[in-house]
């Protein structure tokens, strides 16, 4: 299991407007492409100096591919990263209701009680 790689996906997709749209529209294809092309990139290094060992396990890949943010929470993805990216993708669908998506997000996590999953990477 790699909480780090989950966080890396959320972080790198969130900061790139094209990737945000790609992930919103076709999450399974976006996750597959990202894992293939970006998972091993070291952000501060040249592309020829990428890592060689990073990949999702099946539960992580499936959670990302289905936009399953309660599952990402359970897997220990950083909640700030998940929230920020999912707001970018879905707040627009709740335009009539201020903070409507944020409220829905809280509701879908309502079954969770402390202590929350460990987010240390």
């Amino acid at each position: 299991m790699s909480k780090y790689l989950l966080d890396k996906f959320l972080f790198t997709v969130d900061r790139d407007a094209e990737w945000v749209e790609r992930y919103r529209e076709d999450p399974r294809a976006a996750v597959e492409r990202w894992e293939d092309e970006y998972a091993n990139r070291i952000l501060g290094c040249h592309c020829d100096e990428s890592s060689t060992w990073l990949r999702f396990d099946q539960a992580e890949r499936e959670a990302l591919a289905t936009h399953d943010y309660p599952k990402l929470f359970e897997l220990g993805a950083h909640p700030f990263l998940t929230l920020t990216l999912f707001i970018a993708m879905f707040e627009r669908d709740y335009a009539d209701e201020p903070l409507g998506f944020q409220s829905e997000y809280a509701r879908r996590l309502a079954h969770v009680t402390p202590p929350y999953p460990d987010i240390a990477t």
Partner: peptide
Amino acid sequence: ELGGPRQFG
């Protein structure tokens, strides 16, 4: 709370 059940109350 951010990204959890108690957010945006």
